[in-house]
Design a protein around this nucleic acid. Structure first.
Lengths: 130, 130
DNA sequence: TGCATTGGTTTCCATGAGGTAACTAAGTTC
DNA sequence: GAACTTAGTTACCTCATGGAAACCAATGCA
């Protein structure tokens, strides 16, 4: 029983709950999840929508997401081949917290840019008048 | 005016809303933010709580968070020095979506581990009976 | 005088994530 | 039979991130 309210588990490097933060932190994974929010998308479409990702890296990303059960991969026996990627139930459940984070990011972009400007100005002033 | 509901902005590599995802994705930043949820913490304490991070990397992380206005840095004129790091109002507002994401991660760890096992088993079977 | 404390900085190094470019499979159409 | 399509794979390379270890500044204290 934990006696304090700190997120001790996530601070534990061995706790598996860190995997999701690694997943979110992945350069492409969270983008893919959000693109798939609209429904199943095939490989080549995904490439276009996620804007200039190389096939190698996209494949890696998709395989990892599939392995973690966040997306499903459906191969159609056609030529040329057709492969659809779709959010699983688990992946869809991630959409809600992810969207909130995206909302936060979009809402606070001005504040962050402002803070950066202020910080950089202070730095410059400090260099000129130490 | 966007005609669809897709998160087109975040898919745009030039949109600044990506900065927050990079910030979250940072190996230590989101951990620091969650540690600071409990109140101001000084450098050496932070090092212990975030479990084996080198001072160089912790400094980098803190500087970036400070520059983005998520935390404040307070130096006390003492010897030996004392520096407190604390969430700003902006940083505190990130806590809510971040906590939801952490909740999700903690709640779904079993599902993800299960999915991994199933995936790996399927892979092994595929290798044995191709 | 010299050692301890805190909050860093600096230099060097290894790893790995991601990018580039070329290639492949397999059937369909020209 | 040559070319086109999709969905990748493979080999190679580069650069940024993060880690290790040593060092430093300022002062109180023994």
């Amino acid at each position: 029983m934990e006696t304090n309210a700190l997120p001790a588990n996530i601070l534990d490097p061995d706790c598996p709950s860190r995997v999701i933060f690694q997943r979110i932190g992945d350069k492409w994974a969270s983008l893919v999840v959000q693109v798939l929010a609209a429904g199943p998308v095939r490989f080549s479409e995904l490439r276009k929508m996620v804007h200039v990702v190389t096939p190698k890296v996209l494949t890696q990303t998709l395989r990892t997401l599939e392995r973690d059960g966040l997306i499903t991969r459906t191969v159609y026996a056609q030529v040329p081949p057709r492969v659809d990627y779709e959010l699983s139930e688990l992946g869809a459940s991630l959409l809600e917290p992810l969207t909130l984070l995206r909302q936060w990011a979009e809402d606070h972009v001005p504040s962050i840019l402002e803070a950066r400007d202020a910080y950089d100005d202070a730095q410059d002033a400090g260099i000129l008048n130490p």
